[in-house]
């Protein structure tokens, strides 16, 4: 066997590391989900709560799935990038380089020269969001249909926005609230808070509404097939034949397309908000003034 295409032991270990967390999440789901008659709409299952000084900290299905996914993506990255050489000679490395180049060019186009170092963060957000939505294809509870997970990401983006707005000092930041006229102060504060809220609700609302519509249609098809095909003898009458097929077609839109689109939009909005929060002209003027003072 050629050295280039050799499949080493470490590859197998890393692939096991990729699959094992997801399998563990599925096992947890199978073991701990209580049996329910029919189809019901409910939020993430809370496994246990940790007592905390202010409020109890619930550990829910979505958190477990999210962490398992993070571990899985970590092993996937290790699998893709270990043993890379200066001159790409494996398919794996070509794929990696293509992904990195695409992310870099996306970030470069949308954020400009100053934010070139942002591409790992944007890539991480994109991958986490996309794979979180895709997790529902494995029958797991998608972390993106829990508002708390998305709110966490949105708060992270909000902190980044505030950090870059403060680049010219806190006074400049506070002054920016009274920008056109001082009367606009409450409006500016509301629009500042509205950014993470709207980011949260956009992603969460899209994914969760898709899953609820899927559940409702599956339930309706079950009822319909009982109504239309209930006369079939014996076990045949019990099988919901109409449920075969159509929910899968809907899942292609609601789980795959909608999830991918929302991941892309979340990443794009992150880039746009962060890059537009940075007062480039004022920052350059400030740096020039500093340099003059020092010289």
């Amino acid at each position: 066997m050629n050295d280039k295409t050799k499949f080493r032991l470490i590859d197998i270990l890393l692939i096991i590391g990729m699959i094992l967390p997801l399998a563990a999440a599925m096992a947890v789901k199978i073991l701990f989900t209580p049996y329910e008659e029919g189809i019901a709409v409910h939020g993430a299952l809370v496994f246990f709560t940790i007592p905390m000084p202010l409020q109890e900290l619930p550990i829910a299905e979505s958190q477990i799935n999210s962490w398992m996914l993070i571990i899985s993506i970590f092993f996937f990255c290790l699998f893709m990038t270990h043993g890379t050489k200066e001159k790409a000679d494996t398919k794996r490395q070509h794929i990696c380089e293509w992904i990195v180049e695409k992310t870099d060019s996306l970030v470069g186009e949308n954020m400009g020269e100053y934010f070139k170092g942002f591409s790992p963060f944007v890539g991480a957000v994109l991958a986490l969001s996309a794979f979180s939505s895709l997790l529902s294809l494995l029958g797991l509870y998608a972390p993106t249909s829990d508002i708390n997970i998305i709110a966490g990401w949105a708060i992270l983006v909000f902190l980044l926005i505030t950090y870059y707005k403060m680049k010219c000092g806190p006074l400049h930041y506070l002054k920016s609230f009274t920008e056109p006229v001082a009367v606009m102060l409450p409006m500016n504060i509301i629009s500042e808070i509205a950014t993470p809220v709207s980011m949260t609700f956009r992603h969460y609302g899209n994914v969760m509404s898709g899953s609820i519509i899927s559940i409702l249609i599956a339930a309706a098809l079950q009822g319909l097939s009982r109504l239309l095909l209930g006369w079939l003898p014996g076990v045949l009458g019990e099988i919901p034949f109409l449920q075969i097929g159509l929910p899968a077609v809907l899942s292609v839109y609601f789980d795959v397309f909608s999830g991918m689109l929302q991941a892309f939009i979340f990443a794009m909005l992150t880039m746009m908000y962060v890059s537009s929060a940075f007062p480039a002209d004022d920052y350059a003027a400030r740096q020039a003034r500093k340099r003059k003072k020092n010289a």
């Binding site: 609700f201 969460y204 609302g205 899209n206 509404s209 689109l261 892309f264």
Partner: peptide, 16 residues
């Protein structure tokens, strides 16, 4: 797509 997503926000609030 980005513009559509931003325009969609009010609809998503109502849906929520």
């Amino acid at each position: 797509l980005l513009g559509c997503a931003v325009a969609e926000t009010t609809g998503i609030y109502a849906l929520f």
